[in-house]
Simulated assay, not measured.
Amino acid sequence: MTDAANRTGTTRYLPPGRLSRAVNRIVAALTRRGLSLWGSRVLSVAGRNTGIMRSTPVNVLTLDGEQYLVAARGNTEWVRNLRAAGRGRLTVGRREQWFTGVEVLDDTRLPVLRAYLRRWAWEAGAFFDGVTAGTSDDELRAAAGKHPVFRIVPTPTPEDRS
């Protein structure tokens, strides 16, 4: 477990089932072709052990002019890889956005989680153990440690940095 996981208590991980994996493949294929479904992007992050780029579809939340990634399933592989690599790439079709992922560890993640649940409860609400967008701050705070949140800070592409 990483230091960030120790700080947030994020050890929970709910692996996707067969149906979820199939849906993820479809969403990723559509997103790669330029069709974003409800804010979908393909997230690519270097693997923490191999350095090979690993990709998965994610929902990008825009709130108050900032973009966020929320790990509804908990301490997923992409979360662990992003913590290790610190940066990743989001793509829709041919458009790509490189970013630094800044983990949000305090109560500033509560409005992000609330907005995420408001937008994607139909898709991800089952992973929040009954917590909803209308849940009290105390209940949401208790659940927050199970769902890592990253603020997306755009950065230059690796080619631009050299």
Score class of each variant (00 low, 15 high):
Tyr116Gly: 00
Phe128His: 11
Val104Asn: 03
Gly101Lys: 00
Thr108Gly: 10
Gly88Pro: 06
Arg32Tyr: 03
Val70Asp: 08
Ala28His: 01
Ala85Trp: 11
Val58Trp: 00
Phe127Lys: 00
Val104Asp: 01
Thr56Lys: 02
Arg141Tyr: 00
Leu117Tyr: 00
Tyr68Ser: 09
Leu105Gln: 15
Ala121Trp: 08
Glu159Arg: 14
Ser55Asn: 09
Ala121Lys: 09
Leu113Trp: 02
Val104Thr: 04
Pro154Asp: 13
Ser55Gln: 10
Arg80Ser: 10
Arg48Asn: 10
Arg119Ile: 00
Val23Asn: 02
His147Thr: 13
Thr91Val: 12
Ala22Ser: 06
Met53Ile: 05
Gly93Cys: 04
Ala142Val: 09
Arg83Pro: 00
Glu96Phe: 08
Thr8Ser: 13
Gly88Ser: 08
Ala126Leu: 13
Pro154Glu: 14
Asp107Ile: 09
Val45Tyr: 05
Asp160Ala: 15
Trp98Ile: 08
Arg161Phe: 04
Glu66Asp: 15
Arg161Gln: 15
Arg12Ala: 08
Thr8Lys: 12
Glu96Met: 14
Thr8Asn: 12
Val58Met: 04
Ala142Phe: 05
Leu19Ser: 04
Thr10Ile: 04
Arg54Ser: 02
Gly51Gln: 14
Arg80Gly: 08
Gly145Ala: 11
Phe99Cys: 03
Gly34Cys: 09
Ala144Gln: 02
Leu90Val: 05
Leu69Thr: 03
Ala46Met: 02
Asp107His: 14
Tyr68Ala: 11
Thr108Arg: 15
Met53Thr: 05
Thr8Cys: 07
Leu63Ala: 10
Ser55Arg: 07
Val149Met: 01
Ser36Trp: 03
Asn24Gly: 07
Val102His: 15
Ser36Val: 09
Pro15Ile: 01
Asp107Met: 10
Ser44Thr: 15
Ala144His: 01
Gly93Ala: 06
Gly9Ser: 06
Ala115Val: 03
Arg83Thr: 06
Thr91Ile: 08
Ala144Ile: 02
Asn6Ala: 15
Phe150Ile: 13
Val70Ser: 12
Ala84Pro: 00
Asn24Phe: 14
Gly9Arg: 08
Thr11Ile: 11
Arg151Ala: 12
Ala143Thr: 13
Arg151His: 07
Arg80Gln: 13
Ala29Leu: 12
Glu96Cys: 12
Pro111Trp: 10
Val42Asn: 13
Gly65Leu: 03
Ser55Gly: 07
Ala84Asp: 02
Val131Trp: 08
Gly65Cys: 07
Leu105His: 12
Trp122Ser: 10
Ser162Glu: 13
Ala121Glu: 14
Asp129His: 15
Arg141Gln: 01
Thr8Ala: 12
Phe150Gln: 05
Ala124Ser: 13
Gly65Ile: 02
Gln67Met: 08
Thr50Gly: 04
Met53Glu: 10
Leu117Cys: 01
Gly34Asp: 04
Ser136Tyr: 03
Asp3Phe: 15
Gly17Thr: 02
Lys146Arg: 12
Trp98Thr: 06
Tyr116Thr: 01
Thr135Asn: 07
Thr62Leu: 09
Trp38Leu: 09
Arg114Leu: 04
Gly17Gln: 02
Tyr13Glu: 13
Ala133Cys: 08
Ser20His: 10
Val70Ile: 13
Glu139Tyr: 09
Trp78Gly: 04
Pro15His: 02
Leu63Phe: 12
Ala126Cys: 12
Arg32Gln: 06
Val102Arg: 15
Ala115Asp: 05
Val92Arg: 15
Val60Tyr: 05
Gln97Pro: 01
Gly17Glu: 01
Gly47Thr: 05
Gly145Leu: 07
Ser20Thr: 11
Asn6Gly: 14
Gln67Ile: 02
Gly39Ala: 10
